[in-house]
């Protein structure tokens, strides 16, 4: 637990967006402060919290936490598996560790450490997989995570949460203080527009209903909630009866919310920044199939393929995962 290198809490000096001032640009991503601030709030409340990362403290904003609490921050270097197993060891001593790295590395590279050392061992480790989905755009497939929900969801004893934005992440972290199970938090890159005001109500496994509709209900998670909300508002303004559920907890899934929506709507559309296999769409499909609902299910997301490379916003447009694209998908379904 050595003190980190010189770390500034806030960027100093002018940042030229056209330049490659990576750290400063990164630390200006508005969503990044939520993670560190939520952890600091837990510390302030007397919770025995530690945080760690694997050479990504500027990407996930934990540099901010490290600067405030150098004795509670561990820099693991580029050793994700070591970090995850060590987090399990830390948790055995009564400390609640939060360890963060890119979702691709966490979900795929560290899958077995998560299963064996954390979930099977029932240790209250908090895993933060950031830049999930295709948020790392042109960095390529190695950095994309479109499988992590499917992987984490099938690990027994692990709670899987995909907050919509920074405020909901902060609320989930606050709620996690009393959550006995290990948790996987899947988050974006900190540049998503906020859906919620500061510290919204949050309960693990309790979906948030934004709108109800009889034609179609969109069930979305994570970064997709905001564009879905925009799309649903436009659809409703044009007279369609479209609902929206923020399914922030993928496991345990809010079955009641799914079944109520399937009762009331002709179509359920799941929207996720993830492969349509095994993630939110898969989880909702299981509930609907077993209950024998009459509603039709359509899964929207990455269609079992490796994403193209492009800046993230271009990718969202290409895969119809932006508001306009989602609106088109719904209109096509209801046409």
């Amino acid at each position: 637990m050595t003190a980190p290198m010189t770390v500034t809490d806030t960027p100093t000096g002018p940042v030229n967006p056209g330049s490659w001032q990576y750290r400063q640009l990164n630390s200006r991503a508005p969503g990044l402060s939520y993670l560190s601030d939520a952890l600091s709030a837990l510390v302030a409340d007397g919770h025995p919290v530690m945080a760690g990362t694997a050479d990504l403290q500027y990407s996930n904003g934990l540099a901010r936490f490290a600067a405030r609490h150098p004795d509670r921050f561990v820099q693991f270097g580029i050793s994700e598996q070591n970090m995850v197993s060590a987090a399990a060891g830390i948790a055995t001593t009564g400390v609640m560790p939060f360890v963060a790295t890119f979702a691709s590395f966490l979900g795929l590279l560290c899958c077995e450490q998560i299963r064996m050392d954390i979930a099977y061992s029932a240790l209250p480790v908090r895993l933060i997989g950031h830049h999930a989905g295709i948020a790392l755009g042109f960095y390529g497939t190695s950095h994309h995570a479109t499988e992590d929900l499917a992987i984490m969801r099938s690990i027994a004893g692990l709670t899987v949460v995909n907050p919509a934005d920074g405020p909901q992440l902060a609320a989930a972290i606050k709620a996690s203080a009393d959550h006995p199970e290990p948790i996987y938090f899947r988050i974006g890159r900190g540049q998503e527009p906020n859906v919620y005001e500061d510290l919204p109500d949050f309960q693990f496994g309790k979906a948030i209903e934004h709108e109800t509709g009889s034609d179609l209900t969109v069930i979305a998670c994570g970064t997709m909630v905001h564009p879905c909300l925009e799309a649903v508002r436009a659809l409703r303004a044009s007279g369609l009866s479209v609902g929206l559920i923020d399914m922030h907890t993928i496991k345990p899934l809010d079955r009641d919310a799914v079944l109520a929506a399937a009762e009331r709507s002709r179509v359920i559309l799941t929207v996720e920044e993830h492969n349509i296999l095994g993630g939110l769409g898969g989880a909702v499909a299981e509930v609907m199939a077993e209950a024998g609902t009459k509603a039709l299910l359509i899964r929207h997301g990455i269609r079992d393929e490796y994403s193209l490379i492009a800046p993230p916003t271009h990718l969202y447009r290409h895969y119809q995962l932006d508001a306009a694209g989602i609106e088109t998908v719904v209109r096509d379904i209801l046409a």
């Binding site: 637990m1 995850v84 060590a86 987090a87 060891g89 830390i90 055995t92 001593t93 450490q113 050392d117």
Partner: peptide
């Protein structure tokens, strides 16, 4: 790795 984590947790506690 897990043993190292125990050392680090013990240190904080």
């Amino acid at each position: 790795s897990a043993g190292l984590g125990m050392v680090m947790g013990g240190r904080m506690m």
